[in-house]
Computed example of a mutant assay.
Amino acid sequence: MSSLRGRLRATAYRTFYRLPGRWKRRIVRTVQPTYTIGAVVLVRDPEVSRILLLRQPPGAGWSLPAGLMDRGETPIECAARELGEETGIKLPTERLRPANPNAVVHTRGQWVDMVFETEVEPEDEYTVDAAEVLEAAWHRLDNLPPLTVSTSNLLAHYGIGPYRDYPEVLSR
Rank of each mutant, 00 (worst) to 15 (best):
F16D: 06
F16W: 06
F16H: 09
Y17T: 12
Y17L: 15
R18W: 02
R18E: 14
R18F: 01
L19E: 09
L19W: 14
P20H: 06
P20F: 08
P20S: 11
R22C: 02
R22G: 00
R22D: 13
W23N: 00
R26V: 03
R26I: 04
R26H: 05
I27P: 01
V28N: 04
V28Y: 09
R29W: 09
T30P: 00
T30A: 15
Q32L: 14
Q32S: 10
Q32H: 12
P33M: 09
P33F: 06
P33K: 11
Y35F: 15
Y35K: 04
I37P: 00
I37G: 00
A39T: 03
A39D: 02
A39H: 05
V41W: 05
V43I: 08
V43K: 07
R44I: 02
R44D: 10
D45F: 11
D45S: 10
D45G: 09
P46H: 10
E47T: 11
E47K: 13
V48A: 14
V48Y: 10
S49Y: 11
S49E: 15
R50G: 04
R50M: 04
I51F: 08
I51N: 07
L52E: 09
L52D: 02
L53Y: 06
L54Y: 01
L54R: 07
L54M: 09
R55W: 03
P58D: 08
G59C: 05
G59V: 00
A60L: 14
A60P: 00
A60G: 13
G61H: 05
G61W: 05
W62P: 00
W62S: 03
S63I: 02
L64C: 11
L64D: 13
P65L: 04
A66S: 15
A66Y: 06
G67K: 11
L68S: 13
L68R: 15
M69E: 12
M69R: 11
M69C: 14
G72E: 03
E73G: 07
E73Y: 12
T74W: 07
T74D: 00
T74G: 03
P75K: 01
I76N: 07
